[in-house]
Design a binder for these strands. Structure first.
Length: 411
DNA sequence: ACCTCCCGCCAGGCA
DNA sequence: TGCCTGGCGGGAGGT
């Protein structure tokens, strides 16, 4: 991570540090965890970790350790102009969590264009500027899939070729292209590519179950659905197809919980209560309404109904940027590409993107998830009301003033 | 009782 | 061989 270069950054770093402190385990709990670890019966180890401990100290709450909160803190820590490269180790250390959790976060963030994997252990921060393009591409792909122009990216597809039970036995030849193994490429179905081997690799199959791909498919549901609310059970069914085993479904739902929490913390979706059932559903905060005539760009309008929570609905126009978007997109793409090589060009590119996106980011302090509620309320009151926002401007607002709002509260 | 989701084991991949 | 990556499901916390 680049060194902070201004007092604004110092504020942001301080906020992130405070957030990280908040996230970090109480010492007592850490000790407890260690003891628990030592006491773990080996019989439990067959394919499973193990939950918490009984008689856990009351100071500990699992809400303090949620993926959503972690994601918020992650964003607070890295959503700054001078951040370009993120090391997983340093992130884990800064946030006081295990690496494993960082993988969960970055996989989801990468799926929505906020990060790009640069190298082993290394990611490039694209920021929220990358989200619209990622969503637009997702949507375009989803529509192609829907219209049959592209094969769907679902597990139904892979299941048809290889069931979960037999995947160890039927492996094809590795095709050897290491980078194409990564999510950014595999987001386009491997079989999209002409000449792609029909035979599925073990790694392909693994990828199909990846959190990143699942995130994209989950998001695609929202981008192409007529309704804008879906429960995780429904989502699991849609993504998995009917007739899957109970355990399979349960695993999928677990993962969807993980994803939903991260996306909630990014305010891309929000949790809503579904009428009679106890189970909540999730609503997309960027409701896509009608496709524009040219190149599938979508126009979005704010949801007609009132947003249930008091969250800022900044994701409302995520798929819509009317400003010279092609320029913007290509810049971001370029940045992602240049990431492979690094260098000053990347920095220049990023600066160009940011200057195009507006000035607000420059003079605004980046509050963390715990920034004063009053400040946010003030913005809400003083700023655009839902339904009155103009698209390009809104996107600037969104990308410039992201405030993680994750709350693991009951709806 | 059921939902939510943290936790960490461990397998696969890569250098 | 050791490290990175991340799927996975047990089981505890929360409602």
């Amino acid at each position: 991570m680049a060194a902070p270069s201004s007092s604004v950054h110092e504020v942001a770093v301080a906020a992130a540090a405070a957030a990280a402190m908040e996230y970090a385990l109480p010492q007592e709990h850490q000790q407890h965890q260690q003891q628990k670890q030592q006491a773990r019966p080996r019989a439990m180890l067959a394919g499973a970790g193990g939950g918490g401990a009984k008689g856990r100290h009351h100071a500990y709450s699992r809400k303090d350790k949620s993926l959503g909160l972690l994601c918020s803190n992650f964003v607070v820590l890295y959503n700054r102009e001078d951040v370009e490269s993120i090391g997983l180790d340093e992130a884990a250390k800064s946030l006081g969590v295990e690496r494993r959790r960082i993988y969960d976060i970055v996989n989801v963030l990468e799926s929505v264009g906020i990060l790009v994997r640069k190298a082993k252990n290394r990611y490039t921060w694209i920021g929220f500027d990358g989200v619209p393009m990622a969503l637009r591409e997702l949507k375009e792909r989803a529509l192609r899939e829907k219209s049959g122009l592209a094969p769907p990216q679902t597990e139904q597809q892979s299941a048809a070729l290889m069931s979960d039970d037999e995947d160890d036995d039927k492996l094809g030849n590795p095709d050897g292209d290491v980078e194409s193994e990564k999510l950014s490429e595999t987001a386009d179905n491997p079989s999209d590519k002409p000449g792609a081997p029909r035979c599925r690799l073990r790694s392909d199959h693994r990828k199909e179950k990846s959190l990143g791909l699942l995130t994209q498919n989950f998001v695609k549901l929202f981008l192409t659905m007529e309704v804008d609310t879906v429960s995780l059970d429904e989502a699991a069914k849609l993504l998995l197809g009917e007739g899957h085993e109970e355990t399979n479904m349960r695993t999928k739902v677990r993962r969807l919980y993980d994803i939903a929490n991260v996306l909630s913390s990014l305010n891309l979706i929000e949790k809503v209560q579904q009428g009679d059932t106890r189970k909540p559903a999730f609503r997309w905060l960027g409701r896509v309404v009608k496709p524009n005539a040219e190149n599938g760009v979508t126009i979005t309008v704010p949801p007609p109904r009132k947003i249930l929570s008091n969250k800022r609905a900044f994701g409302t126009e995520l798929t819509n940027i009317d400003m010279p978007r092609s320029n913007l997109d290509s810049k971001i793409q370029k940045k992602a590409k240049l990431t492979q090589d690094g260098g000053d060009i990347l920095k220049n590119c990023k600066l160009t993107v940011q200057s195009r996106l507006g000035q607000s980011k420059k003079n605004g302090i980046v509050y963390g998830p715990f920034h004063p509620a009053g400040a946010r309320k003030h913005e809400l009151d003083g700023g655009n009301k839902p339904g009155q926002r103009e698209s390009a401007e809104d996107w600037e607002t969104f990308s410039a003033s992201f405030r993680p709002q994750y709350q693991n509260q009951a709806p």
